[in-house]
Design a protein around this nucleic acid. Structure first.
Lengths: 199, 199
DNA sequence: GTCACAAGAGACCGAACGTTCTCCCCCGCA
DNA sequence: TGCGGGGGAGAACGTTCGGTCTCTTGTGAC
């Protein structure tokens, strides 16, 4: 049917492939789904997959890269507001709980992926580490701007809360998890609220 | 070699099997290791595996059951001290950081397993949920004893910190993760330290 | 002594895995 | 008009998967 003109420079079949892979990998894991499933649901042939990706691993990396871009965009838009740093942290935290509350939430794509690729030398593992480092740096900078004197410790604390919330989000009641997370973040912000710091 | 008398009622081959499975599943994940690897390293034959377990799934359940018993014992011994509830929470927290700091730490066996078995109806997923419910109940009870009036919220907060710390433990510097976790726990205990409660 | 049974050794199964291959069609472009 | 590339269709590759099978051996209980 609607074949389309195929005008896209990166091809429409590739987009369908990546979209399907993203959906299935996130929902069901990586090792437990074969390329047969993906090409069937993407309505693409085997040859098409291997024309666009060197193999399953590259497809997984593309999946994580897409997730990374999505989260960066989400954090950027939450951070875009012209508001005090503490409020921007609250905005980022709220965007996290929105994810947790959304239907089909299945935890952090990166934590899930790294559970399946424990080898630190593996490209997929390293992609996860790179994403996590970016996130830690981002929230640490934000907390420093908010006046948290040991911003590093506060950043690690916030990331730890986020990791716990993301991991639990699909195991406990998402509403309770979100509420607990936001309260914990408020506690963290309250711990050193001084805008000037007390040195 | 040292064949032993085989006096164990649960057989020595079974113990070797379970021990090997535990080591490999924890270190490398579940889906990515086949039964061939396990029987080879346990030095048993295929038939022996299927004489003691109905299949791979039952072996995984036995692995998680063993991990569950280990953690319950660990928490029980940390809790055994005749000390104030808050100090027993600190003892449990310290036992968690000992795990994180120990060589070969690869995160929470249950969080790792559930990342590979997202289907809530799957027996392995349910085993994880059961373990987590026990842990939540245990720490909530402990926090209630320590005088935290909304003990439920405090328990969820503590479990969230634990989940984050366990997830990060093999992704960041374990020392920093442990330090961050213990400081966060102190902050949590400080939030409502009243032994009588203020109702 | 013999009987039962745990365990070893290894062949074997069908299915699924990731991957490569050939063949053909269709469409834009020169 | 010819050409090339993206895509569809599907056969086939070798490997590994989880699981079942037969046969043999050692050994403790009766």
């Amino acid at each position: 049917m609607s074949r389309g003109t195929g005008s896209g420079s990166t091809s429409e079949a590739r987009a369908r492939l990546l979209g399907t892979a993203t959906r299935i990998f996130y929902a069901e894991g990586i090792h437990s789904v074969g390329v047969d499933r993906i090409i069937a649901e993407a309505q693409v042939t085997r040859a098409t997959l291997y024309r666009h990706f060197s193999g399953k691993e590259e497809l997984v990396l593309a999946y994580l890269d897409q997730a990374d871009r999505g989260i960066r965009a989400q954090v950027a838009s939450a951070q875009a507001e012209d508001a005090p740093a503490a409020d921007r942290i609250r905005a980022v935290s709220r965007s996290i709980t929105e994810g947790i509350r959304s239907p089909g939430f299945r935890g952090c794509a990166f934590l899930n992926a790294v559970a399946e690729y424990p080898d630190p030398a593996h490209p997929i593992h390293q992609a996860v580490l790179a994403h996590r480092q970016w996130f830690l740096d981002t929230v640490t900078e934000l907390l420093a701007e908010a006046g948290h004197t040991p911003a590093g410790a506060a950043g690690r604390h916030l990331v730890m809360l986020r990791d716990g919330a993301m991991a639990e989000g699909c195991l406990f009641d998402p509403e309770l998890v979100s509420e607990t997370f936001l309260q914990a973040v408020e506690g963290l912000l309250r711990a050193r609220p001084a805008s000037t710091g007390r040195k």
